[in-house]
């Protein structure tokens, strides 16, 4: 092949390559928007370059060191004693409350998401579910089910679009500083996500068994509870653990709104300018989140092995 022919061939192949026009255009648009944000916002002007800022940073770094240990050489034993003392006075209780908040919120989210995901699944929430040859269902029935399914989907969309912190703030503002308010805020947002994922799980299940049940006269509720639920349960539990990780991460900050937990302790320390304590609470939340991630990864790996074992 001559050099020219080769280049022509390459050009022809290049023309045939799959294009993702929308993707490229969107990426370009987002990049332009980012440039616009950097140039119009006052991000650049606020860069800590002045000497004053550096002095401030040095002061801050100094205050991060536990109060009793400042201005002398660091001794690990003393540091350990300080950490142990902080842990037993407030750290342990705050960590336990944060963990409980995440677990309770995940559980409540699952409770709310289960019925929602059935109602949002297009295969189940229609006038004649799992019927191969859709007999002409009455127009009213079709419209009602269509509307119900769309309403549930819209509600789930709104819930997951609202940040959990905003939901928790509003819940505390309206219900008072109860643990319930934080649990509700966290659970509602996650119910929006779990409901959507659960609906997709239900829609992706093979339709044959359900159609067979339906043909032998099972009701919609029976199909949902006796067939779809048991089959999808293991996948749903996997999702639950995944959302649990995110909930735990979010629970570390929700305490800033109310409830004596890690975020609460941090906010208190910040208000009193006790930066050493603040750092302690941040370290506690980081370790809690890391431990949660590791546990969830471990159990998800075990569960998917188990699931595979059941299938084969």
């Amino acid at each position: 092949m001559s050099e020219l022919a080769r280049w022509e061939r390459i050009a022809a192949l290049r023309k045939q390559r799959p294009r993702a026009g929308l993707l490229h255009g969107s990426a370009l648009a987002l990049a332009l928007l980012a440039v616009l944000a950097w140039t119009t916002g006052d991000f650049a002007s606020s860069a800590p370059t002045a000497g004053g800022r550096l002095a401030e940073l040095a002061r801050f770094a100094h205050e991060l060191v536990p109060h009793a240990l400042r201005d002398r050489p660091l001794e690990l034993g003393e540091l350990g004693a300080w950490i142990a003392e902080r842990w037993s006075t407030s750290g342990a209780a705050a960590t336990a409350t944060t963990l409980a908040l995440a677990i309770a919120a995940t559980a409540l989210a699952a409770l709310l998401a289960l019925p929602a995901s059935f109602l949002a699944a297009r295969t189940l929430a229609c006038a004649e579910p799992y019927v191969d040859d859709p007999r002409p269902a009455s127009r009213v029935r079709r419209a009602t089910w269509g509307l119900a399914q769309r309403l549930v989907r819209a509600l789930l969309l709104l819930l997951r679009a609202t940040p959990e912190y905003v939901l928790a703030f509003l819940a505390v503002a309206l219900l008072g500083p109860l643990a319930w308010a934080l649990v509700l805020g966290l659970a509602l947002h996650n119910a929006g996500i779990l409901g959507r994922l659960g609906a997709e799980l239900a829609e992706d299940l093979p339709p044959r068994p359900a159609a067979a049940l339906r043909a032998s006269g099972a009701t919609r509720t029976q199909i949902a509870l006796l067939l779809l639920l048991p089959v999808a349960a293991s996948r749903f539990v996997l999702l639950l653990f995944y959302r649990g990780e995110t909930c735990l991460r979010e629970a570390t900050v929700l305490g800033m709104v109310a409830l004596p937990s890690l975020g609460y302790g941090l906010a208190q320390a910040r208000a009193r300018l006790f930066y050493d304590e603040m750092l302690f609470f941040i370290a506690c939340s980081a370790l809690l989140v890391l431990a949660g991630d590791l546990f969830s990864t471990w159990i998800r790996a075990r569960l998917s092995v188990a699931r595979r074992g059941n299938c084969t």
Partner: peptide, 18 residues
């Protein structure tokens, strides 16, 4: 490690520092 500290906690740290 970066992921394990929530953005609001980073914000609290930076607020205190800068």
């Amino acid at each position: 490690a970066l992921r394990s500290v929530h953005e609001l906690l980073w914000a609290a740290l930076f607020l205190a520092a800068l």
